[in-house]
Design a protein around this nucleic acid. Structure first.
Length: 674
RNA sequence: GCUGCUGUAGCUCAGUGGUAGAGCGCGUCCUUGGUAAGGACGAGGUCAUGGGUUCAAAUCCCAUCAGCAGCUCCA
């Protein structure tokens, strides 16, 4: 006897074995047709799988309206895609083919490279398989037979996975549709016809077997599927929109920055318009730093190798640094002694040669500023801030636009504090990040508190200190009024940290602001302050950067605003334009006054029609246009056009300037709804 | 770093072995037009770089550099 509880509160009892489908069919033919899979006591099951014969279960039938069904659809589509590829390319080895947040992929090992030209053929074969309406059939197979089956099928990767990843499983599940059999946990749709027509292959890329870069590389086919063709179209449109907002595209179109081959990959040239945005952001944060009692410092872009040997960054992280600089004299002597390149590298690593490093971080410089004076506990906290440019040798494949570069400027600061001051100082840092994100209308972010992994012994510092610091981080994060997750094992080896992860328009997540507690560097550099007990004490350091790096932050900001910056950040705040050349003289007076008012503008005096000038300014995403014609010249007015609202009508120049300055001062974010 | 794709005018791109192209932008001239494209003429190219194949290479091959997608990485 089986009792089934349905989500609507009703109960059904069965004396003979039934599947979820049987239950659906009994409720009604419509539901039987719509049902795709089921949840039994919260766990997924195939629609036609038999339910337990005895007891009581909660059953929920999944239809295409359930998010869980979408995942099942995508995973099933992955099998169909794999089947199509196997039909078209004999000898394919299958790896993994899961559903993802936006679609699915399948990893293949095959001799010839797949290209986009193959997509239509694969898609056509997939359509054929859908039309064949093959049932997805679950097979439960004991381990020895499962291994035998995978060997027979020639699926060596599956054999390996059975022997390593799944070595504790006595029975393995396979799914079969038609001639295609795949080792798979499931679940799947009843049959291939339910996949429908809303699928599309998107891209092909390399991926390592089991995510290990030392293993063989597979070909990963990315695709997506929706229950509805319209949803697919909407998703493709969203991808299109994301491309339109791409900061690399907008950066070129709006003349914000350039990355030039002749200068070097990953090295950003900030053009005048991009520099305005950066400067405004720096000024903005600078005001808050003053308010919070920070001291501005400046330090050079290089430091002695020995400095980084003390900090531990060299040679440990040398693969992600630009190679050291060695002076001419030393190099010549080494060459005369017959020192080879590999000797040189070894001797640099061993610390036998003096050299300089392009600084990969700012902390050692700031530490030496702290250490240049003797400090009392009364001086603390000491907060040293700098827009510090650092250089890191990112792997060539990682570079991209402004978001991953080789030289970047952090809005960096280091706080030297007593342990008692730690909670307040962390809270102050978080407040700053929150102000920054709030001012820019970036609300889609999460806060991640990285704690130590209790199992690991890689961490430096006393456990009691860690407990206090972690408590301080949690407390500060909780005080933010934003949801946060505590993630054990995510701490740096030198201390816990708090990261702000912002989600951009394409759904990618970027780690921007960060606050990190550090016990390691004060130790390594033997930093001290004199306590009230007249004895030396070790300060704790806090590293923090609300933007992370200005490059990455501006990159994300460009996409966030789709290039249409709020007035206070807009490189060109106003486009002044004449109706005809007859009003040019008056317009020049207006231009002078606007400049004196501190507004950033360009003036368009060309003998073009007004419509053309407006169109250009609209496309250039200039927030306000000031139109001056003969009527304005007579009345001493300007006519304002808002990029979003259109023509706002005439007003006196003074009134127009007041309006713009008020909006700038308020840092108002105005955007059209997307 | 790895796999695949790509590199032609300032930008977006067409050109698949036989004379280097388009649109936009830019310049000059005409037009003096009140809220999203007025017209005419013109300038602009080591076809990423270096080799090779060929009577002949933007086009085919190899290498390098750079970009893109993804993987791996990010103190």
């Amino acid at each position: 006897m089986l009792k089934i509880a349905l989500p609507d509160g009703t109960q059904r009892t069965y004396s003979s074995p039934v599947s979820a489908y049987d239950v659906a069919a009994e409720i009604g033919p419509g539901l039987a047709q719509a049902a795709l899979a089921a949840e039994v006591d919260g766990g997924q099951t195939d629609l036609h799988a038999l339910l337990p014969p005895e007891g009581e279960v909660a059953l929920k039938l999944l239809t295409k309206r359930d998010a869980a069904a979408l995942e099942i659809l995508r995973h099933s589509a992955a099998h169909v895609m794999a089947q199509a590829v196997m039909r078209l390319f004999p000898g394919v080895q299958l790896a993994f083919g899961p559903a993802t947040e936006t679609g699915f992929y399948y990893d293949f090992l095959l001799k010839c490279p797949l290209t986009e030209e193959d997509f239509p053929h694969i898609e056509a074969e997939m359509r054929a398989i859908v039309k064949e309406n093959l049932a997805f059939e679950r097979l439960e197979i004991p381990r020895p037979e499962a291994l035998e089956l995978c060997r027979e099928l020639g699926q060596e990767l599956k054999v390996e996975h059975l022997e390593t990843g799944l070595d504790d499983q006595e029975t393995l599940s396979f799914y079969r549709q038609g001639e295609f059999v795949d080792l798979c946990r499931g679940r799947h749709l009843p049959s291939t016809k339910h996949i429908g027509k809303g699928f599309k292959l998107l891209s092909v890329a390399g991926a390592y077997w089991k995510g290990d870069s030392s293993r063989q590389q597979l070909q990963r086919l990315y695709a997506t599927v929706f229950f509805d063709k319209k949803e697919l179209a909407a998703y493709l449109h969203q991808l299109e929109e994301a491309r339109r907002r791409d900061h690399r595209v907008l950066g070129k179109k709006l003349n914000l920055f350039e990355i030039d081959d002749r200068v070097g990959a990953g090295l950003v040239l900030w053009k005048p318009r991009g520099a305005v945005i950066r400067e405004e952001l720096q000024n903005f944060i600078g005001q808050h730093l003053k308010r919070q009692g920070y001291s501005q410092v400046f330090t050079p872009h290089v430091g002695k190798l020995e400095l980084y040997q003390t900090s531990g960054h060299f040679p440990y992280y040398q693969d992600s640094q630009f190679p050291p600089l060695v002076d001419r004299e030393t190099l010549r002597k080494l060459a005369d002694d017959g020192c080879s390149c590999s000797d040189l590298a070894n001797r640099l690593t061993a610390g036998q040669i003096d050299g300089y490093l392009l600084k990969p971080m700012n902390c050692p410089h700031h530490i030496r500023i702290y250490a240049s004076e003797k400090h009392s506990y009364r001086d603390l906290p000491i907060r040293l801030a700098e827009f510090g440019t650092v250089y890191r040798w990112e792997q060539s494949g990682e570079l991209g636009g402004l978001t991953r570069v080789r030289g970047f400027t952090q809005d960096d600061a280091h706080l030297f504090v007593t342990e008692a001051q730690l909670p307040d100082e962390i809270a102050g840092c978080l407040e700053l990040v929150k102000i920054v994100l709030g001012t820019l209308g970036m609300s889609d972010y999460r806060v991640r508190v990285g704690l130590r992994d209790p199992e690991s012994d890689k961490y430096v510092g006393q456990p009691a200190q860690w407990d206090r610091a972690e408590a301080a981080c949690r407390q500060a994060a909780a005080g933010l009024g934003v949801e946060y997750t505590a993630e054990p094992g995510e701490a740096a080896f030198y201390g816990p940290k708090i990261d702000f992860v912002v989600r951009d328009v394409i759904g990618r997540q970027w780690q921007l602001g960060t606050v990190q507690v550090d016990y390691q560097l004060p130790e390594r550099f033997e930093l001290e302050y004199t306590g009230a007990d007249n004895k030396p004490h070790r300060p704790v350091m806090v590293h923090r950067a609300p933007f992370g790096s200005l490059e990455r932050f501006v990159g994300v900001l460009i996409e966030h605003f789709a290039g249409a910056f709020p007035l206070w950040l807009a490189p060109e705040q106003v486009r002044l334009m004449t109706v005809s050349e007859k009003s040019a003289d008056y317009a020049r007076q207006v231009e002078t006054q606007l400049r004196q008012a501190g507004l950033r503008l360009t003036a368009d005096y060309r003998g073009q029609k007004l419509g053309a000038k407006i169109r250009e300014a609209q496309l250039a995403l200039v927030p306000y246009m000031l139109v001056v014609g003969e009527k304005d010249a007579q009345q001493g007015t300007v006519t304002i056009r808002d990029r979003l609202e259109g023509d706002l009508g005439p007003r006196t120049l003074a009134a127009a300037i007041d309006q713009l300055q008020a909006e700038i001062a308020a840092k108002t974010v105005r955007q059209t709804k997307q």
